[in-house]
């Protein structure tokens, strides 16, 4: 079975700070890392390959320096890594990226499963897996965990807002994997050395994929200003009887969507 795994390189969300004075994200402390959920997707792919054989191909869209993220995927165990890199793709939004990835999956050929992380932890809206599925004309399962293959039926678990489901879908399909039990493996030291020194990251551009500018460069949304979270006002005491104080606290928390 041939599995493609989509990998995004992001700024480490744990190290991103907020600059209140500039009302901007301060990325200076943040390294570029593989989007953590994508590593869970890759882990799921590697486990499927271990059980059923086949090939795992890591796929990413971005500038040349994104090849580092793909090298990490190679180090973890991916067989091939392909970077879609093109000036034209530089400004593409989720729609264009999904289109480019779908075209790449078709171009690779014979792919029966595409895995992605549940969402990109930077600014992602979690729409890529479904967009990609739409482009491919395949079904999608989002927020899935522990995928298993039984006679070309893929089974997994999904937890929605209310409960946990057991889902099954015939391949080919797109699956977005959550960060649950099956923790991504540590890339072995030997593979790290190989992946960063010797391994090849194939680079495809729009010509290779037959993508035209109109297909990918249309912008559907535009990022505007940031809204800073309200400054914390510490030491505020709620007064009244326990019942009154509790009620106003619950109201405050609901208002701030903390509960």
């Amino acid at each position: 079975m041939r599995i493609a795994v989509c990998i995004k390189q992001i700024l480490d969300p744990r190290a991103v700070r907020l600059s209140r004075s500039r009302e901007a994200i301060d990325p200076r402390q943040a390294a570029r890392i593989v989007n953590p959920p994508d590593r869970y997707a890759l882990e799921a792919a590697l486990r499927l390959r271990e059980r059923h054989g086949g090939e795992v191909i890591a796929l990413s869209v971005g500038a040349r320096d994104v090849s580092d993220a793909l090298r990490e995927a190679l180090a973890m165990g991916a067989d091939r890594a392909i970077l879609l890199s093109d000036e034209m793709l530089a400004g593409a939004d989720a729609s264009g990226v999904a289109r480019a990835l779908a075209r790449a999956v078709e171009h690779i050929g014979d792919v029966s499963l595409v895995l992605t992380g549940e969402r990109a932890l930077d600014t992602g809206g979690g729409t890529l897996p479904a967009r990609l599925a739409q482009e491919l004309g395949w079904p999608v399962v989002t927020d899935a965990s522990e995928p298993q293959l039984e006679d070309s039926i893929l089974r997994a678990f999904q937890r929605d807002e209310k409960q946990r489901w057991s889902v099954s879908v015939a391949l080919p399909a797109v699956l977005a994997v959550t960060r649950q039990r099956e923790k991504p493996r540590y890339p072995p030291a030997l593979r790290i050395a190989w992946a960063y020194r010797e391994a090849e990251v194939e680079t495809w551009d729009c010509d290779d994929l037959g993508l035209s500018p109109e297909e990918i460069s249309a912008r559907h949304t535009e990022e505007r200003n940031l809204v800073m979270p309200p400054e914390r006002n510490l030491g505020f005491i709620l007064s009244g009887s326990p019942e009154e104080a509790a009620r106003s606290l619950v109201a405050e928390l609901r208002g701030k969507r903390l509960i």
Binding site: G125, H220, E222, N225
Partner: peptide
């Protein structure tokens, strides 16, 4: 307006299409 970076701030997004 939607949250970014797991909620450390929010971003205003304009719809163009």
């Amino acid at each position: 307006t939607r949250p970014i970076y797991e909620g450390i701030a929010s971003q205003v997004i304009a719809c163009l299409a």
